[in-house]
């Protein structure tokens, strides 16, 4: 228990350049047997990936290319209809709102989470009494089951009895129909999602701040810069690699968000908070007459978006790993 994985991986990163990097030609002694052993240890993972990742994804793709009814879903004899499901989905009047809401939800969540997370990271990085304890408490929202957070926010945002409207009333603001008005439902789920996402941003950005050598700040202090200048001229540029990673990971995670929206508003009222994720679920499981084909098609569109940004993330991470 003397060292956590964090320090271990950091030690590793520090040691990496000194150690000769493993090249395929420099495999451990043992040659043939070593290679077999390597694959034997990987076998459970490979079997798992094929059976429980690749196969469900393949089934999902197959679903999206066939004309499924409940009966043919069970019997498995649905006719192949090519991209008709995708065409149906794109022509659906829900498509454009769902796409717009996904973009707005993701962008607003990212900007707010990142902005607040950054401000908090900088704040907690100044060492004061209790700063470590309070920072730990900030992790709570991230650890709670999403259904717990979502149902708590639902009740807090309740139009008549919600505590948020009570506070607004104290400030002289009229009550807002957070979850029942089409104008506010998307904002409501964004608020809850930002609350959940702040800890993640805080932890990553804080660890980034810890990586900046204090000497840099000492030099800047000698030059007589103000705190604000220090942030924009030193901290922010130095944090750019970590910021990029944080934002990209946040992007990929936010695109996936389904639980919070579904539990708080079910995408409603009148699709006003429907995103691609909730729409996909709505089509496949949300009604008595499931439309698995179109549901799977929406899901696959979402995968394409997530993977596109995911690949950017991996690229950025690789490049940073290479230069570090």
């Amino acid at each position: 228990m003397s060292s956590s994985t964090q320090t271990a991986s950091r030690d590793l990163a520090a040691r990496e350049p000194a150690r000769p990097r493993a090249r395929p030609s420099r495999r451990p002694a043992g040659g043939g047997t070593g290679r077999w052993a390597a694959w034997a240890f990987l076998l459970p993972l490979l079997a798992y990936l094929i059976a429980f990742y690749a196969y469900p994804l393949y089934r999902n793709l197959d679903l999206s290319l066939r004309d499924y009814t409940v009966r043919s879903f069970v019997q498995g004899d649905a006719p192949f209809i090519g991209l008709a499901n995708y065409r149906e989905v794109v022509d659906n009047p829900t498509f454009l709102p769902a796409l717009t809401h996904t973009v707005v939800f993701t962008a607003a969540s990212l900007v707010l989470q990142f902005g607040i997370g950054m401000a908090l990271a900088v704040f907690f990085h100044q060492h004061f009494r209790l700063s470590a304890t309070l920072r730990a408490l900030f992790l709570v929202p991230w650890l709670l089951p999403l259904i717990v957070s979502a149902s708590t926010w639902s009740w807090m945002l309740n139009s008549e009895a919600g505590v948020v409207n009570t506070f607004l009333g104290v400030l002289g603001v009229d009550p807002v129909n957070w979850l029942t008005s089409p104008d506010w439902s998307l904002a409501s789920v964004i608020i809850a999602n930002v609350w959940i996402g702040i800890p993640f941003n805080l932890v990553l950005l804080y660890s980034g701040l810890q990586g900046i050598p204090p000497q840099i700040y000492e030099a800047a202090a000698l030059d007589g810069t103000t705190g604000w200048q220090r942030f924009w001229r030193l901290t922010f540029p130095l944090l750019r690699p970590v910021s990029a990673i944080t934002l990209l990971l946040g992007l990929v995670y936010t695109l996936k968000v389904f639980d919070i929206i579904w539990i708080m508003t079910k995408g409603g009222p009148a699709d006003s908070s429907t995103t691609l994720a909730t729409w996909s679920y709505q089509l496949g499981f949300g009604s008595l007459l499931p439309q698995f084909g179109p549901g799977a098609a929406v899901g696959n569109l979402l995968i394409v978006a997530a993977l596109a940004f995911g690949l950017v993330y991996i690229r950025v991470q690789r490049r940073q790993g290479g230069t570090a």
Binding site: L46, Y53, L57, F258, F285, G299, F309, I314
Partner: peptide, 23 residues
């Protein structure tokens, strides 16, 4: 394999769920 694992983490849960449901 490491690359596939990184990509796997990015696949939305509902999409996996739909595939699992069919299987």
């Amino acid at each position: 394999v490491s690359f596939v694992l990184l990509v796997a983490q990015m696949i939305p849960g509902i999409i996996m769920a739909m595939g699992f449901y069919a299987i």
